[in-house]
Every structure is written in structure tokens, then in C-alpha cells.
């Protein structure tokens, strides 16, 4: 299997001197193509920091990071933004969508940035909205959608450009458990049908259990990395 993400002895410190917070310390990790991996751990354990470092949104204090075979830690800002545009999809916890854009326009956003012709975009986005279960809601604005529906739009947007990797930071944190389960169903399905690689963080036991792989973080270090069923709480 091919590694989509590779981390080598990655550390991230915030602040200076006595006040330094070691958000990540010596993290070695690799995520394979087609994986559906969950990052879990107590609050403050470094989940968000890990995802940000992988996504090129934050630079590590030490160590090296590769995404899709390219070393992120060597890239200029504009290279990083190109990488995010073309190879990485993002889903955030909440307020993911741009409020003045309709569901359709939000899902279309990345494709538009990529410069895809409008007609092609249309076909693709309409199909995507159907796949995430939002058929007929393309003209709605985010405020006219439920939290779960908003996250579906965010997922559609994240996978629209067929990225090598989708990073999702607590995508189910702001929805009820039923909706969370449905969102996970969607990710599992997209992972199988479209071979989309997902790396998401979560607090939710039920969500963790359904991942193919679970990475447990504790104080910025990897505590466990393997099948979710091997973990007991």
C-alpha cells in the first residue's frame, strides 16, 4: 500500500520558555491510501494540531511531513495553498460553509478555484449533492440547512476535487448521535465507493469504532495506532 501521509518525528511547540506547550512530540505516523482513520484523545492532546500540520495549515517545530509523496515541511506558502487546493479536502467542526453561498456554490467553491469550466462543475456538483443526500437542496443557503445537512455540504465540498486526502476535525461534534452516525455512513460509503482517504478527529466512541484504524493521542504523543476493536475504555 501507498502512504498518502507520512510523519517523521514531528513536534509542535506553542509559546516560549516556561510557558511552552508541547502540542505534539516525536510523532511518527503513516496513513495509507484508502484509509479511514480516526484520531482520538482527550481535549488538548493535540488532535487539531496534528491535522493542521498534515494539512499544511500549521508548520511543525521539528520533524518532516509528506503528503501525497511531497514534503510539506519544505514548501512555500503558495505551494502549500496549491497543495491544499488540489490534493487535500477539509471539513471542520462547525461554521464550515460560507454563509452567502448556496449549498451548490459552497460545494462548487474548490472546483471554481481550480478553474474548472462552469458546465463541468455543474454536472459534478449536482451529482455530489445527490451522493451526500442533498438532492434538491442545492439552492438553499447554509442557514436554511440543519447542522447535519451543512456538514454533508462540507463533505461534498471536501471530496469534490477528488483529493488524495480528506482531513476532518471533529466533523460530528456539533450534531446529535443519529446525525453523527449518518455522517459516518456517508464517509464510509465515500471511502469505499470513491477510494477517498479520510483522516478525522473525534471524541465520539461510536464514531471511533467505525473507523478502519484508530490513532490515540495523549499529551502530544501516539498512545495507540491500530484496529479500533483492540482498544478498551
Amino acid at each position: 500500500m501507498e502512504a498518502i501521509v507520512q510523519l517523521e518525528d514531528v513536534a509542535k511547540d506553542y509559546g516560549q520558555g516556561d510557558l511552552t506547550v508541547h502540542a505534539l512530540r516525536g510523532v511518527d505516523l503513516s496513513i495509507q491510501k484508502g484509509d479511514l482513520a480516526a484520531v482520538a484523545g482527550p481535549s488538548g492532546s493535540g488532535k487539531t494540531t496534528l491535522l493542521n500540520v498534515i494539512g499544511g495549515l500549521d508548520t511543525p517545530s521539528a520533524g518532516r511531513v509528506w503528503v501525497d509523496g511531497k514534503e510539506v515541511t519544505q514548501m512555500s506558502r503558495s505551494k502549500l495553498s496549491k497543495l491544499r487546493l488540489n490534493r487535500i479536502g477539509f471539513v471542520f467542526q462547525a461554521y464550515n460553509l460560507i454563509p452567502v453561498l448556496t449549498a451548490y456554490e459552497n460545494a462548487e467553491y474548490v472546483l471554481m478555484l481550480q478553474g474548472m469550466p462552469a458546465k463541468e462543475r455543474r454536472e459534478k456538483v449536482m451529482d455530489l449533492l445527490k451522493q451526500v443526500g442533498l438532492e434538491g437542496m442545492d439552492k438553499r443557503f447554509p442557514r436554511e440547512l440543519s447542522g447535519g445537512q451543512q456538514q454533508r455540504v462540507a463533505i461534498a465540498r471536501a471530496i469534490a476535487a477528488q483529493p488524495a486526502l480528506v482531513l476532518a476535525d471533529e466533523p460530528t461534534a456539533n450534531v446529535d448521535s443519529k446525525t453523527a452516525a449518518a455522517l459516518l455512513d456517508l464517509m464510509v460509503r465515500l471511502n469505499e465507493e470513491r477510494q477517498a482517504t479520510f483522516l478525522f478527529s473525534t471524541h465520539d466512541q461510536n464514531v471511533m469504532k467505525r473507523s478502519k484504524r484508530l490513532i490515540l493521542l495523549k499529551d502530544g504523543m501516539i498512545d495507540h495506532n491500530g484496529k479500533p476493536e483492540n482498544i478498551e475504555h
Binding site: S81, R84, I88, F90, Y95, Y109, V110, L113, R157
Partner: peptide
Amino acid sequence: IREFGIQKAMGSTPWR
């Protein structure tokens, strides 16, 4: 500000 952050995270350039 949040929105601009999201746009940049998704690969929007400063120019854009």
C-alpha cells in the same frame, strides 16, 4: 475572519 480562514484553508490564494 473565520470565513476567510476557511477559504484560505481550502486553497484560496491571498490574491483571490
